[in-house]
Amino acid sequence: MSIFVDKDTRLVVQGITGREGLFHTGQMLEYGTSVVAGTRPGKGGEWVLDGKVPVFDSVKIAVEATGANTSIIFVPARFASDAILEAADAGLQLIICLTEHIPVQDMMRVRNYLDQKAVRLIGPNCPGLLTPGEAKVGIIPGDIAIPGAIGVVSRSGTLTYEVLYALKQLGLGASTCVGIGGDPINGTNFIDALALFEGDPQTDKVVMIGEIGGTDEEKAADYISSQMTKPVVGFIAGKTAPPGKRMGHAGAIVEGGAGTAVGKIKALEDAGVVVASHPEEIAELLKN
């Protein structure tokens, strides 16, 4: 078992003919993910990657033709919100959006629309999902993680790789790794992922990687103390970040004294979460 993606995932790649879309589709196929279709308006009927994946003009046609059940989005920011809505209206129930720099008002409209439907969005501005040994839907390098019983959920990309790699060095594997993304408005938050890990029989322990900005980590702390039985190890990036400065991610900013690393670490510790002082320590804490 795992959460979100597994061997039954049938993936459609939106924006498959772009540089990133094409490269990472190749990587996902190599990992064993079943990529059944790609889309690019105006290029329907073509095939990419030596005839391995058919291209369709729209998600709706791709779904009808291939039975795709999950979408991953690689399209540029100015078209990304439209791509998410297109996937949702084509009936897909899981949408992973990697695109960075989507305007916040676009995401607010998208999120409020999706809330009226039975659809799960992961991201945007995230590295996607990896269920080691089963499926890779995103850009997390496949060889840095091995199958295991640790669930990983994170707001960051490369910092997540760092943690997966450190786990692997100590022989520890992951059940599923979920990148929820660094934007202020996203589809799936910490609590959503924590709840799924709590109910997943293959997951024994959970790693939660947060950062400054917003209040999602504090809310997750409330959830952990009241609802979770599985042990959680946490890490919060941005202890040295000055207030008022956006640290790369649109969502990573300390504003009006809220969203500080100190506040988040305290909330997690009060909820019984062991908080690591640096990324590699997460693996050491899980080993014990």
């Binding site: 994170s154 707001r155 960051s156 990309g157 490369t158 910092l159 997540t160 790789y161 760092e162 660094g182 990687i209 950062e211 400054i212 890490f235 990036a237 941005g238 040295t240 970040a241 640290m247 790369g248 991610h249 990573a252 640096h278 990324p279």
Partner: peptide
Amino acid sequence: NGAGLAMA
């Protein structure tokens, strides 16, 4: 490379 890792 990466905002989260840069902060960490």
